[in-house]
Design a protein around this nucleic acid. Sequence first.
DNA 1: AATGTGACATACC
DNA 2: TGGTATGCCACAT
Length: 119
Amino acid sequence: MCWRADGNDMREDFFKDVFEVVCLIPKGRVTNYGAIAKYLGTAQSSRMVGWAMNASHSYKKKVPAHRVVNRNGMLTGKHHFTDPYRMQQLLEKEGIKVKNDKVLEFRKLFWDPTEELRL
DNA sequence: AATGTGACATACC
DNA sequence: TGGTATGCCACAT
């Protein structure tokens, strides 16, 4: 079934942008879906960011999806990882403290692409 | 084109 | 904290 190049599984689209941004998240920092969505121009569709993460598995590059949490700093997407614990482990490994599936000092560790990548 | 879906955000209780 | 309801937008079928 001759797969065409343009019919590749990974569309260089919204998703790619999401992955790129996520990959740019500094180590030891976290962000939320809304921030990424806003950076991409679709502030009102934070859902898409999360959904993009869902496709992160298909992405060639490694996407540190564990650095992306919801607005409360809660590891909502951990269940989508290879292992639910993996996400927390990775975060703690980077120096981020996680308690009750929630990022401690989320405010302080929050990394906003709209501000950090602004310049 | 229409419908279904989703790792959210916000509001309300 | 958790469930429900609504909005919102891009992707999959």
